[in-house]
Protein backbone atom coordinates (compact mmCIF):
# COMPACT_ATOMS: atom_id res chain seq x y z
CA UNK A 1 0.00 0.00 0.00
CA UNK A 2 1.11 3.50 -0.73
CA UNK A 3 2.41 4.70 2.60
CA UNK A 4 0.89 8.13 2.15
CA UNK A 5 -2.39 6.51 3.11
CA UNK A 6 -0.98 5.01 6.29
CA UNK A 7 -1.93 7.83 8.71
CA UNK A 8 -5.43 7.96 7.19
CA UNK A 9 -5.78 4.19 7.53
CA UNK A 10 -4.57 4.40 11.14
CA UNK A 11 -7.17 7.07 11.91
CA UNK A 12 -10.00 5.07 10.38
CA UNK A 13 -8.86 1.94 12.21
CA UNK A 14 -8.77 3.81 15.53
CA UNK A 15 -12.26 5.18 14.92
CA UNK A 16 -13.67 1.75 14.09
CA UNK A 17 -11.98 0.10 17.07
CA UNK A 18 -13.10 2.88 19.42
CA UNK A 19 -16.65 2.63 18.11
CA UNK A 20 -16.59 -1.14 18.54
CA UNK A 21 -15.40 -0.75 22.14
CA UNK A 22 -18.19 1.77 22.81
CA UNK A 23 -20.83 -0.52 21.34
CA UNK A 24 -19.54 -3.48 23.31
CA UNK A 25 -20.11 -1.50 26.48
CA UNK A 26 -23.21 0.44 25.50
CA UNK A 27 -25.03 -1.32 22.64
CA UNK A 28 -27.32 1.69 22.32
CA UNK A 29 -24.47 3.65 20.76
CA UNK A 30 -25.01 1.72 17.53
CA UNK A 31 -28.24 3.59 16.85
CA UNK A 32 -28.63 6.10 14.02
CA UNK A 33 -29.75 8.62 16.64
CA UNK A 34 -26.28 8.65 18.14
CA UNK A 35 -24.74 8.97 14.71
CA UNK A 36 -27.07 11.79 13.75
CA UNK A 37 -26.29 13.65 16.94
CA UNK A 38 -22.59 13.10 16.39
CA UNK A 39 -22.91 15.01 13.12
CA UNK A 40 -25.15 17.77 14.50
CA UNK A 41 -23.12 18.39 17.65
CA UNK A 42 -19.85 18.64 15.75
CA UNK A 43 -21.10 20.41 12.64
CA UNK A 44 -19.58 23.81 13.41
CA UNK A 45 -16.25 22.28 14.44
CA UNK A 46 -16.15 20.08 11.34
CA UNK A 47 -16.80 22.95 8.93
CA UNK A 48 -14.09 25.08 10.51
CA UNK A 49 -11.72 22.09 10.50
CA UNK A 50 -12.05 21.75 6.71
CA UNK A 51 -10.62 25.25 6.37
CA UNK A 52 -7.95 24.42 8.91
CA UNK A 53 -7.01 21.33 6.88
CA UNK A 54 -6.24 23.46 3.84
CA UNK A 55 -4.23 25.90 5.94
CA UNK A 56 -2.18 23.14 7.58
CA UNK A 57 -1.69 21.30 4.27
CA UNK A 58 -0.09 24.46 2.94
CA UNK A 59 2.30 24.53 5.89
CA UNK A 60 0.49 27.31 7.76
CA UNK A 61 -1.77 27.65 10.77
CA UNK A 62 -4.91 29.69 11.45
CA UNK A 63 -5.44 30.59 15.11
CA UNK A 64 -8.24 33.06 14.39
CA UNK A 65 -11.10 30.70 13.60
CA UNK A 66 -12.51 30.33 17.12
CA UNK A 67 -12.69 34.09 17.46
CA UNK A 68 -14.14 34.46 13.96
CA UNK A 69 -16.88 31.95 14.80
CA UNK A 70 -17.77 33.91 17.94
CA UNK A 71 -17.67 37.18 16.05
CA UNK A 72 -19.99 35.81 13.37
CA UNK A 73 -22.46 34.61 16.01
CA UNK A 74 -22.48 37.95 17.81
CA UNK A 75 -22.66 39.85 14.52
CA UNK A 76 -25.73 37.86 13.42
CA UNK A 77 -27.45 38.19 16.80
CA UNK A 78 -26.93 41.93 17.00
CA UNK A 79 -27.91 42.48 13.39
CA UNK A 80 -31.10 40.40 13.68
CA UNK A 81 -32.04 42.02 16.98
CA UNK A 82 -31.57 45.62 15.97
CA UNK A 83 -32.57 45.58 12.26
CA UNK A 84 -35.28 44.01 10.19
CA UNK A 85 -32.81 42.41 7.79
CA UNK A 86 -33.60 38.88 6.64
CA UNK A 87 -31.28 36.23 8.14
CA UNK A 88 -30.18 35.05 4.66
CA UNK A 89 -28.93 38.55 3.83
CA UNK A 90 -27.21 38.68 7.21
CA UNK A 91 -25.55 35.34 6.45
CA UNK A 92 -24.19 36.67 3.16
CA UNK A 93 -22.90 39.80 4.86
CA UNK A 94 -21.19 37.77 7.60
CA UNK A 95 -19.54 35.50 5.04
CA UNK A 96 -18.29 38.46 3.02
CA UNK A 97 -16.72 39.98 6.15
CA UNK A 98 -15.04 36.79 7.38
CA UNK A 99 -13.79 35.88 3.88
CA UNK A 100 -12.28 39.33 3.44
CA UNK A 101 -10.77 39.05 6.91
CA UNK A 102 -9.10 35.74 5.98
CA UNK A 103 -7.90 37.11 2.65
CA UNK A 104 -6.38 40.09 4.42
CA UNK A 105 -4.46 37.82 6.79
CA UNK A 106 -3.28 35.74 3.82
CA UNK A 107 -2.12 38.88 2.02
CA UNK A 108 -0.17 40.01 5.08
CA UNK A 109 1.41 36.56 5.47
CA UNK A 110 2.49 36.52 1.85
CA UNK A 111 3.45 40.10 1.13
CA UNK A 112 5.09 40.95 4.45
CA UNK A 113 6.58 37.45 4.73
CA UNK A 114 5.28 37.11 8.26
CA UNK A 115 4.82 33.77 10.03
CA UNK A 116 1.15 32.68 9.87
CA UNK A 117 1.26 31.97 13.60
CA UNK A 118 1.78 35.63 14.47
CA UNK A 119 -0.54 37.07 11.83
CA UNK A 120 -3.45 34.81 12.73
CA UNK A 121 -2.78 35.30 16.44
CA UNK A 122 -3.27 39.02 15.83
CA UNK A 123 -6.37 38.14 13.80
CA UNK A 124 -7.67 36.10 16.73
CA UNK A 125 -7.40 39.02 19.16
CA UNK A 126 -8.85 41.38 16.60
CA UNK A 127 -11.90 39.22 15.85
CA UNK A 128 -12.55 38.49 19.52
CA UNK A 129 -12.20 42.16 20.34
CA UNK A 130 -14.62 43.13 17.58
CA UNK A 131 -17.16 40.69 19.02
CA UNK A 132 -16.82 42.40 22.41
CA UNK A 133 -17.21 45.80 20.79
CA UNK A 134 -20.56 44.68 19.36
CA UNK A 135 -21.83 43.43 22.71
CA UNK A 136 -20.64 41.80 25.88
CA UNK A 137 -23.96 40.08 26.55
CA UNK A 138 -25.26 36.80 25.26
CA UNK A 139 -27.99 37.79 22.81
CA UNK A 140 -30.70 35.27 21.91
CA UNK A 141 -31.85 34.95 18.31
CA UNK A 142 -35.64 34.62 18.06
CA UNK A 143 -36.17 35.11 14.35
CA UNK A 144 -38.85 32.74 12.98
CA UNK A 145 -36.59 31.85 10.06
CA UNK A 146 -34.17 30.27 12.56
CA UNK A 147 -36.97 28.05 13.83
CA UNK A 148 -37.76 27.05 10.24
CA UNK A 149 -34.15 26.15 9.53
CA UNK A 150 -33.85 24.18 12.75
CA UNK A 151 -36.94 22.16 11.91
CA UNK A 152 -35.43 20.89 8.67
CA UNK A 153 -34.04 17.40 8.91
CA UNK A 154 -33.94 14.06 7.15
CA UNK A 155 -35.03 11.09 9.21
CA UNK A 156 -32.87 8.02 9.02
CA UNK A 157 -34.23 4.53 9.56
CA UNK A 158 -34.10 3.96 13.29
CA UNK A 159 -35.17 7.49 14.14
CA UNK A 160 -31.83 9.26 13.73
CA UNK A 161 -31.88 12.73 12.23
CA UNK A 162 -29.54 14.33 9.77
CA UNK A 163 -30.20 17.96 10.63
CA UNK A 164 -29.61 20.84 8.26
CA UNK A 165 -26.31 21.73 9.92
CA UNK A 166 -25.14 18.10 10.11
CA UNK A 167 -25.90 17.65 6.43
CA UNK A 168 -24.19 20.96 5.65
CA UNK A 169 -21.02 19.71 7.33
CA UNK A 170 -21.04 16.57 5.18
CA UNK A 171 -21.53 18.73 2.08
CA UNK A 172 -18.63 20.99 3.07
CA UNK A 173 -16.42 17.93 3.55
CA UNK A 174 -17.44 16.60 0.13
CA UNK A 175 -16.66 19.94 -1.48
CA UNK A 176 -13.36 20.16 0.44
CA UNK A 177 -12.30 16.72 -0.78
CA UNK A 178 -13.11 17.71 -4.35
CA UNK A 179 -11.20 20.98 -4.14
CA UNK A 180 -8.18 19.43 -2.45
CA UNK A 181 -7.73 16.51 -4.79
CA UNK A 182 -9.33 17.45 -8.07
CA UNK A 183 -8.45 21.09 -8.72
CA UNK A 184 -5.24 22.91 -9.57
CA UNK A 185 -5.78 25.08 -6.52
CA UNK A 186 -5.74 21.94 -4.38
CA UNK A 187 -2.53 20.73 -6.02
CA UNK A 188 -0.99 24.15 -5.39
CA UNK A 189 -1.90 23.91 -1.69
CA UNK A 190 -0.03 20.62 -1.42
CA UNK A 191 2.88 22.06 -3.42
CA UNK A 192 3.11 25.03 -1.07
CA UNK A 193 3.21 22.66 1.88
CA UNK A 194 6.02 20.69 0.24
CA UNK A 195 8.24 23.76 0.05
CA UNK A 196 7.26 27.33 -0.80
CA UNK A 197 10.53 28.19 -2.54
CA UNK A 198 10.50 25.09 -4.71
CA UNK A 199 6.81 25.54 -5.46
CA UNK A 200 7.53 29.04 -6.66
CA UNK A 201 10.37 27.79 -8.88
CA UNK A 202 7.96 25.26 -10.34
CA UNK A 203 5.55 28.02 -11.27
CA UNK A 204 2.99 27.84 -8.48
CA UNK A 205 1.39 31.27 -7.96
CA UNK A 206 2.31 31.29 -4.26
CA UNK A 207 0.83 34.69 -3.46
CA UNK A 208 -2.58 34.01 -4.95
CA UNK A 209 -2.67 30.54 -3.43
CA UNK A 210 -1.77 31.76 0.07
CA UNK A 211 -4.42 34.47 0.00
CA UNK A 212 -7.03 32.03 -1.31
CA UNK A 213 -6.18 29.50 1.41
CA UNK A 214 -6.72 31.96 4.26
CA UNK A 215 -9.78 33.43 2.53
CA UNK A 216 -11.21 29.91 2.33
CA UNK A 217 -10.42 29.36 6.01
CA UNK A 218 -12.11 32.67 6.85
CA UNK A 219 -15.15 31.79 4.74
CA UNK A 220 -15.52 28.40 6.41
CA UNK A 221 -15.03 29.94 9.86
CA UNK A 222 -17.86 32.35 8.98
CA UNK A 223 -20.03 29.46 7.79
CA UNK A 224 -19.15 27.64 10.99
CA UNK A 225 -20.24 30.73 12.92
CA UNK A 226 -23.61 30.68 11.15
CA UNK A 227 -24.01 27.00 11.96
CA UNK A 228 -23.03 27.65 15.57
CA UNK A 229 -25.63 30.41 15.89
CA UNK A 230 -28.25 28.02 14.46
CA UNK A 231 -27.05 25.36 16.91
CA UNK A 232 -27.24 27.59 19.98
CA UNK A 233 -29.78 30.22 18.79
CA UNK A 234 -27.64 32.89 20.36
CA UNK A 235 -24.60 35.04 19.90
CA UNK A 236 -22.06 35.36 22.69
CA UNK A 237 -18.63 36.92 22.44
CA UNK A 238 -17.09 34.47 24.91
CA UNK A 239 -18.26 31.43 22.94
CA UNK A 240 -16.00 28.97 21.07
CA UNK A 241 -12.81 29.88 22.90
CA UNK A 242 -10.12 27.43 21.84
CA UNK A 243 -12.10 25.92 18.98
CA UNK A 244 -9.12 26.54 16.70
CA UNK A 245 -7.13 24.15 18.86
CA UNK A 246 -9.86 21.49 18.64
CA UNK A 247 -9.81 21.94 14.87
CA UNK A 248 -6.02 21.58 14.75
CA UNK A 249 -6.32 18.44 16.87
CA UNK A 250 -8.92 17.00 14.50
CA UNK A 251 -6.72 17.76 11.49
CA UNK A 252 -3.66 16.12 13.04
CA UNK A 253 -5.59 13.10 14.34
CA UNK A 254 -6.98 12.89 10.82
CA UNK A 255 -3.49 12.14 9.58
CA UNK A 256 -2.40 15.50 8.17
CA UNK A 257 1.24 16.44 8.76
CA UNK A 258 1.53 19.60 10.87
CA UNK A 259 4.50 20.60 8.72
CA UNK A 260 2.28 20.58 5.66
CA UNK A 261 2.20 18.88 2.30
CA UNK A 262 0.65 15.59 3.28
CA UNK A 263 -2.78 14.58 4.45
CA UNK A 264 -6.42 14.24 3.45
CA UNK A 265 -9.55 16.30 4.02
CA UNK A 266 -11.46 13.05 4.59
CA UNK A 267 -9.09 12.24 7.44
CA UNK A 268 -10.20 15.41 9.23
CA UNK A 269 -13.81 14.17 9.17
CA UNK A 270 -12.70 10.99 10.91
CA UNK A 271 -10.69 13.10 13.35
CA UNK A 272 -13.83 15.09 14.16
CA UNK A 273 -15.87 11.91 14.58
CA UNK A 274 -13.26 10.42 16.96
CA UNK A 275 -13.44 13.53 19.14
CA UNK A 276 -17.23 13.44 19.07
CA UNK A 277 -17.22 9.75 19.87
CA UNK A 278 -15.11 10.26 22.99
CA UNK A 279 -17.52 12.94 24.15
CA UNK A 280 -20.54 10.74 23.46
CA UNK A 281 -18.94 7.87 25.38
CA UNK A 282 -18.41 10.09 28.39
CA UNK A 283 -22.03 11.24 28.21
CA UNK A 284 -23.19 7.62 28.08
CA UNK A 285 -20.99 6.69 31.00
CA UNK A 286 -22.31 9.54 33.10
CA UNK A 287 -19.76 9.13 35.89
CA UNK A 288 -16.63 10.28 34.05
CA UNK A 289 -15.57 13.89 34.19
CA UNK A 290 -15.80 15.66 30.85
CA UNK A 291 -12.12 16.48 31.21
CA UNK A 292 -11.44 12.92 30.14
CA UNK A 293 -12.26 14.11 26.62
CA UNK A 294 -9.28 16.45 26.75
CA UNK A 295 -7.02 13.81 28.25
CA UNK A 296 -7.90 11.21 25.63
CA UNK A 297 -7.56 13.70 22.78
CA UNK A 298 -4.19 14.75 24.17
CA UNK A 299 -3.02 11.14 24.28
CA UNK A 300 -4.28 10.54 20.74
CA UNK A 301 -2.46 13.62 19.48
CA UNK A 302 0.77 12.40 21.01
CA UNK A 303 0.30 9.01 19.43
CA UNK A 304 -0.25 10.56 16.02
CA UNK A 305 2.70 12.88 16.26
CA UNK A 306 4.87 9.86 17.11
CA UNK A 307 3.38 7.92 14.20
CA UNK A 308 4.15 10.76 11.79
CA UNK A 309 7.66 11.20 13.12
CA UNK A 310 8.25 7.48 12.68
CA UNK A 311 6.90 7.57 9.14
CA UNK A 312 9.11 10.49 8.17
CA UNK A 313 12.18 8.75 9.53
CA UNK A 314 11.22 5.53 7.82
CA UNK A 315 10.79 7.34 4.51
CA UNK A 316 14.09 9.16 4.97
CA UNK A 317 15.96 5.94 5.61
CA UNK A 318 14.42 4.22 2.63
CA UNK A 319 15.33 7.10 0.43
CA UNK A 320 18.94 7.03 1.52
CA UNK A 321 19.22 3.34 0.82
CA UNK A 322 17.44 3.54 -2.52
Amino acid sequence: MNQRYLPLAATIAIFLIAYAVCIAQYPNMLSTRVMGNLLTDNAFLGIAAVGMTFVILSGGIDLSIGAVIAFTGVFLAVLLQSTAIHPLAAFVLALVITTAFGALMGAIIHHLEMPPFIVTLAGMFLARGMAFVLTIDSIPIRHPFYATLKSLYYTLPGGGRITLIGGLMLLVFAAGILVAHRTRFGANVYALGGGAATAQLMGVPTGRTTILIYALSGFLAGLSGIVFSLYTSAGYSLATVGVELDAIAAVVIGGTLLTGGSGFVAGTLVGILIQGLIQTYITFDGSLSSWWTKILIGALLFAFILLQKGLIQFTGRRRRHA
Partner: peptide, 16 residues
Protein backbone atom coordinates in the same frame (compact mmCIF):
# COMPACT_ATOMS: atom_id res chain seq x y z
CA UNK B 1 16.53 18.40 -7.15
CA UNK B 2 13.96 21.16 -7.29
CA UNK B 3 10.87 19.07 -7.14
CA UNK B 4 8.37 18.48 -4.37
CA UNK B 5 9.04 15.28 -2.46
CA UNK B 6 5.54 15.20 -0.98
CA UNK B 7 3.79 15.00 -4.35
CA UNK B 8 3.60 12.00 -6.67
CA UNK B 9 5.86 11.70 -9.69
CA UNK B 10 2.96 12.54 -12.01
CA UNK B 11 1.90 15.56 -9.94
CA UNK B 12 5.46 16.86 -10.07
CA UNK B 13 5.59 16.50 -13.84
CA UNK B 14 2.28 18.27 -14.42
CA UNK B 15 2.06 20.76 -11.56
CA UNK B 16 0.36 23.88 -12.84
Amino acid sequence: VNLLANLTVAENLFLG
